[in-house]
């Protein structure tokens, strides 16, 4: 298994990879309370509860592309996004930025890498400090890191606000004086203020109304062209991802189950989970339809099913799926899927 993973890693072109995750995992441990600790000393070994939020994930984001990361709540997509953005260290595995492992960088390099990856959050109401003026919110990071001189701050803030389509006369206002869509633009301006290369968007349009969502999505696409940005776009909304992404990775319970170019993934999904997901998305052009539902819900990541995590809900599950975890393998050039069904083909 190890040999197999090594070859898939080597096959990738390191040159154009902006960020690369190799076997990255993140687990969260539930703190044991006093009673459990006492019980443990007396030999009643209570099991620790460990949530494996992200489980040995390999993912490459190449320069200039938009990678969509799709999954339902609790599948670990936000945790993965946070690790990419450097907010959360991985429990194991390594993250390469520009071909170098982040943990091996020196201080200055690490700072440069951290600034190059910025994040835009889901909730435009919770992610802005209500006591700071827009100008302070946008200017904070570039000032701290010495990217702009104090005398040039005003100009810099004006430029950022203009870029995201905010009126620069508003810069002395507070966040509560803006609508949801405008606040999300402030969040985008804050991320852009340190000249990032990669932006991690974690459900960045999920809280917005459809007409406002369209405005913000258009802004994302325009910024990508103007500033040559790369995006890791995390969303549960397949319609949004289909529209924006070049490549899509589907996550289920901490693992990537399928990865392909957007066109291929949406036209002929390989993994049964992807197939089911695509079938259940309501679309404007399908009227009065019958929903063919996947049974059950996402199992708890504290106690995930053995073998393939999807097997209890999968219509094609065989006995092997219960026992053996399918590897994420190349099923066609540039197309990965983790399903035992592919072995028979």
């Amino acid at each position: 298994m190890k040999a197999n993973l090594a070859t898939t890693t080597d096959n990738r072109v390191r040159g154009d990879a902006l960020i690369e995750l190799v076997r990255v995992s993140r687990s969260f441990e539930k703190k044991r309370d006093v009673a459990v600790k006492i019980a443990n000393t007396m030999g009643l070994g209570a099991k620790e509860e460990i949530v494996q939020a992200v489980d040995r994930v390999d993912l490459v984001v190449r320069k200039g592309e938009v990678v969509g990361l799709v999954g339902e709540s609790g599948c670990g997509k936000s945790t993965l996004g946070r690790m990419v953005a450097g907010i959360l260290p991985p429990s194991s595995g390594s993250i390469y930025y520009g071909g170098k492992s982040v943990s091996a960088l020196n201080r200055a390099e690490r700072r440069a890498a951290a600034l190059a990856v910025q994040m835009i959050f889901q909730d435009p109401f919770a992610s802005l400090n209500p006591r700071m003026r827009v100008k302070e919110i946008i200017a904070g990071a570039p000032l701290y890191h010495g990217l702009v001189r104090r005398s040039e701050v005003d100009q810099h803030v004006d430029l950022m606000m203009e870029r995201v389509g905010l009126d620069k006369t508003y810069k002395r206002r507070y966040p509560h004086q803006f609508s949801g869509g405008q606040r999300q633009r402030i969040g985008i301006a804050r991320a852009l203020a340190v000249n990032p290369k990669l932006i991690v968007c974690d459900e960045s349009v999920a809280a917005l109304d459809v007409s406002i969502q369209a405005q913000v999505l258009n802004l994302f696409m325009k910024l990508r062209q103007d500033l040559d940005l790369t995006y890791l776009f995390i969303s549960h909304d397949l319609g949004v991802v289909e529209h924006l992404a070049d490549r899509v990775a589907i996550m289920y319970l901490g693992r990537i189950v399928e990865e392909a170019t957007t066109a291929e993934l949406f036209s002929k999904p390989n993994h049964p989970y992807t197939t089911a997901l695509l079938k259940e998305v309501p679309r404007l052009d399908s009227r009065h339809r019958e929903f063919q539902t996947i049974k059950g819900e996402i199992p708890s990541p504290i106690n995930p099913p053995s073998g393939c995590h999807f097997h209890p809900r999968c219509p094609h599950a065989m006995s092997r799926c219960r026992l053996e975890q399918p590897k994420l393998m190349e099923v066609a050039p540039g197309r990965l899927s983790a399903c035992h069904l592919n072995d028979g083909k």
Binding site: S179, G181, V210, S211, I212, Q213, A214, Q215, L217, N218, M221, K222, D237, L238, G239, V240, E242, H243, L244, T262, A263, V281, R283, L284, D285
Partner: peptide
């Protein structure tokens, strides 16, 4: 009409979405 055309799944991927200006 604007609402229908703002839905991403209803537009060709990659093209700008038709947006309703303002709020």
């Amino acid at each position: 009409n604007g609402l229908i055309h703002s839905v991403p799944g209803n537009n060709r991927p990659g093209t700008p979405l038709q947006q309703i200006p303002g709020v």
